[in-house]
């Protein structure tokens, strides 16, 4: 079996789909954050795969590098928000984040 660009793209699309389903279906804020990480990772895989098939420059890998940095920042702030939310509501259930509703 010859591995082509398409296989990487298909794998990446599948991982993105799994992450999206996790984000939409799960109600645990922590798991939702992990699903976001899954989606960011799958996008990184797409960038790196395309870069491998056009190796004149490092644009794809550079973009993946920046995505990794932004994902780290996002995880730090997101987890801080989760902690703050937990302190307020004593739960990590995202349906309970309804302070603005009333």
């Amino acid at each position: 079996m010859q591995i082509e660009l398409g296989h990487f793209l298909a794998l990446s699309a599948t991982i993105f789909g799994i992450g999206a389903i996790g984000f939409l279906v799960r109600r645990n804020v922590l798991v939702q954050l992990m699903s976001i990480e899954l989606m960011l990772n799958s996008v990184n895989l797409t960038f790196v795969a395309f870069n491998r098939y056009a190796p004149q420059n490092h644009l794809g890998q550079l973009f993946a590098f920046f995505v990794i940095a932004v994902a780290a920042a996002e995880a730090a702030v997101g987890l801080a928000i989760v902690l703050s939310f937990f302190r307020l509501r004593k739960t990590v259930h995202s349906d309970r984040a309804d302070t603005l509703k009333n």
Binding site: L5, G6, A10, L11, A13, T14, G17, I21, R52
Partner: peptide
């Protein structure tokens, strides 16, 4: 997702 994956699978470029 499956639709996307199957449509991307045949993408071919010379490495």
């Amino acid at each position: 997702t499956a639709m996307l994956a199957f449509s991307l699978m045949p993408a071919h470029r010379d490495a």
